[in-house]
Design a protein around this nucleic acid. Structure first.
Lengths: 338, 338
DNA sequence: ACTATTTTTGCATACGTATGCAATATAGAC
DNA sequence: GTCTATATTGCATACGTATGCAAAAATAGT
């Protein structure tokens, strides 16, 4: 039963033939490389070079039951900083010698549908970078004993590790910053997704306000786009009691807020302070110059991969949830003390 | 020689055992499914369901010499619309039953370094979405007979198919639009990358100006960021002969141009018309409202995949370069006729 | 020079699925 | 009921690499 060979027709057998050794020896040269004489190793390498031989990773995976592939799961990205995160994960994984299988679903599709397909490829682990969806994917990974780490979100009690920004604390810090600058009419504009991130930002903000005796914070929820922010701000600023400070759970709607304020003649930061979240590159642009909470993305990625790879090496490593502090970056859109 | 099994310990053998058939039969149920009695098929499916069996794609790939994986190659993205493109490619490929191996390099790395690693995974084809780098990757794919399609760029004579926006024609159209609106002091701000896209945009613009008797177009090259655009515009607008119309090869610097104009008190579009390229979402934001050339991204992706998949099915399909027309989207940043 | 080690190498088989071919079961024709 | 023709199924092996174990070769020890 002869079949059409793979595109790269050269296999370890042919290298073995040319080098005058057995296939096993060729294999050993290209994998561990233990207990080989310098001479044969060199002969094999020469033969391989001549034939332009590259080990077939598929065959290797089948034999070792390790694919060296990480599944990178992402749902529709409402947040413009997600793509950068994917890019960063991919590069870092490449550096560490892994390949990345990308799984991404649209706004209305469910990533969960794709999981079985991906598991079929025997990925060694999963990084889950997704807001709304992916609850089932998490459970399923856990059930299968497939190492997985959630990024930017957590699921307590699920047994799945997670790395996230300390959103609750950041929310409190923003509240404090506003209050110390004597703002008293506060508003919160929150994202669409009912994720731990959004819940915690709001909770931290509102709770801290309450602790310091400021109640009745106005809220606009389900806002995650520029236009949504524009409209929400328009409503708020035209209302009977317009806020003098707005905390946006994401930068994108914060830009909309700033443009709405300008269009309504509300001066920033004199009449209105605005603080966003994420610190995407646009936050530095001159018309916005947005004060915002920066997520320590680089570090979060690093920790995520540490946890994941450790779990892959050592199947019985426990699950961990790590919160990394956000940094309030003070620019011009908020009137704050110091 | 018993080894630790794959995570999903259930194989076609065990399904066969439970269903009381041979492994071949199970295999046939999950692949083609030709010539099987309805009864056995059902028994196999039941057994598979009970055992939660999923065929191992790695083993299948080894056997069929088809991985159903497409390599998606991207270099550092200077352009914010690239991530969306990656996302769109991924989703579409999923819909079509393919998996995506993501290969992306940083600004200073060379994607080319990663190619051998990827080829080791026996991808069935390559989509190359990259500006600056990736010349060698293209040649290498061609040499190996690996189906590949360039996106947003082309390499004539390389034998590699490509799909791109009709940049040259778009450049001419922008020139015509400016001239018809009686602009005479023109400037061009071009991107960093010395790619066919940038070369063609500039060429079409400048050539058309020359054809219609307008020479001496000022040029600022190597500008692809917001800040770069801001600075370039500042230089141009403060010069002895400031332009009254600027064509930016990308939207991002165009935003910088608009902000610079505002900061210098130059009114847009009264004193200055600005046209960008790409039509990224921000172009619609109220402070910019940018007139720009939209690339027909959806269609480009569709055509790219058609060409690629056809080439995969039919190894001897010839290489094709397709140019899809861009659309000048008229908004408020340029004073144009009609 | 001869045995006891220690290195190096090769043999055989496993990883899980697909498939050509032969064998068997089933149906159809008379 | 016998004999073809056809629809189902199973056997055996291939895909390319890794690796336990035994064999062979090299080295050391006396």
């Amino acid at each position: 039963m002869r079949r059409k060979p793979f595109r790269s027709r050269v296999t370890s057998h042919e290298v073995a033939l040319r080098a005058g050794v057995s296939q096993s020896t060729v294999s050993r040269v290209f994998s561990g490389g233990e207990g080989l004489s310098q001479a044969t190793r060199q002969r094999v390498l020469d033969a391989a070079r001549d034939l332009k031989y590259k080990p077939n990773a598929i065959a290797r995976s089948l034999s070792t039951r390790r694919t060296q592939i990480i599944g990178l799961v992402s749902s529709h990205m409402t947040n413009p900083y997600f793509p950068l995160v994917l890019q960063a994960f991919t590069q870092r994984l490449h550096e560490l010698g892994w390949k990345v299988l990308l799984i991404s679903a649209g706004l209305n599709e469910d990533v969960d549908e794709l999981l079985p397909e991906v598991l079929a490829y025997q990925v060694d682990g999963l990084v889950i970078v997704t807001g709304l969806h992916g609850r089932r994917i998490t459970e399923e990974a856990q059930r299968q004993g497939l190492p997985a780490v959630l990024f930017g979100r957590y699921a307590m009690g699920s047994g799945v590790s997670a790395v996230s920004c300390a959103n609750y604390e950041a929310g409190r810090e923003v509240a404090d910053a506003f209050l110390e600058a004597s703002h008293r009419r506060l508003a919160y504009i929150g994202g669409l997704e009912d994720t731990s991130a959004n819940v915690d930002r709001r909770k931290g903000f509102v709770e801290r306000l309450a602790e310091r005796g400021v109640g009745g914070c106005q809220e606009e929820l389900g806002v995650f786009t520029y236009h949504g922010g524009y409209e929400a701000a328009t409503r708020l600023l035209r209302s009977a009691s317009p806020p003098d400070a707005i905390f946006c759970a994401n930068d994108m709607p914060a830009f909309g807020v700033l443009d709405a304020a300008r269009d309504l003649g509300v001066r920033v930061p004199d009449d209105l302070s605005v603080i966003g979240f994420d610190d995407i590159p646009m936050a530095q642009w001159s018309p916005y110059n947005l004060t915002t909470v920066r997520q320590p993305v680089e570090e979060m990625i690093e920790v995520t991969l540490e946890l994941l790879l450790e779990r892959i090496d050592n199947a019985k490593a426990g699950s961990v949830v790590r919160f990394l502090p956000g940094i309030l970056v003070r620019r011009g859109s908020a009137r704050l003390i110091h």
